[in-house]
């Protein structure tokens, strides 16, 4: 009959559980995943993260002679797939989640990369860093065609092997 009184001792024992949050430490555990951070020194601009990112928070755009890896926190779902995918381990997951801001540009983080331009056709293709990486990783790569875009490289290689029909 008076079982409803039993909540009183529980309440007294528990005390106040509300946290005065902005003035107190937030309750996050050690495995919490927050916003990501891209290390511009490690990033080579391969674009693997932009292809796996489920909400398309990471995008790549080519502007004149730079490739920009754009991270928009506003779309980020904190899944960390990019960090798992990144071959250079340039992306780290932080515990940052207090990201609200009055200025939308605070939500963007850009990594700029110098882009390679094909000396023959003038097309821009991959970043210089990625190209350098490939050169250092792949032994016996024909260095003379590395500066060319994929199309011109194909043509040049063919020329080398079968000669040029003039």
């Amino acid at each position: 009959m008076v079982k409803f009184l039993k909540i009183l001792p529980i309440a007294i024992k528990t005390g106040t559980v509300t946290i005065k949050y902005p003035y107190q430490e937030p309750l996050i555990t050690e495995s919490f995943r927050g916003a990501i951070e891209i290390d511009p020194n490690k990033c080579v601009g391969c674009g693997a993260c932009t292809r796996i990112c489920p909400p398309k928070a990471l995008t790549m755009t080519i502007e004149s002679n730079t490739i920009i890896l754009k991270y928009f926190v506003g779309r980020c779902i904190f899944c960390g797939m990019c960090a798992d995918t990144c071959p250079e381990k340039a992306i780290s997951i932080t515990k940052e989640f207090e990201l609200a801001t009055g200025n939308i540009f605070d939500l963007y983080a850009d990594v700029e990369h110098e882009v390679k331009t094909c000396p023959i056709c003038g097309k821009t293709f991959i970043t210089r860093k990625l190209s350098d990486k490939i050169i250092s990783k792949v032994p016996d790569i024909p260095l003379e065609t590395m500066d060319l875009c994929p199309d011109c490289r194909r043509k040049e290689t063919l020329k080398k092997f079968i000669g040029v029909p003039e």
Partner: peptide
């Protein structure tokens, strides 16, 4: 909820 965050990260 906190336990779920500990196990999964969210």
């Amino acid at each position: 909820m906190v336990l779920a965050e500990l196990l999964t990260g969210s």
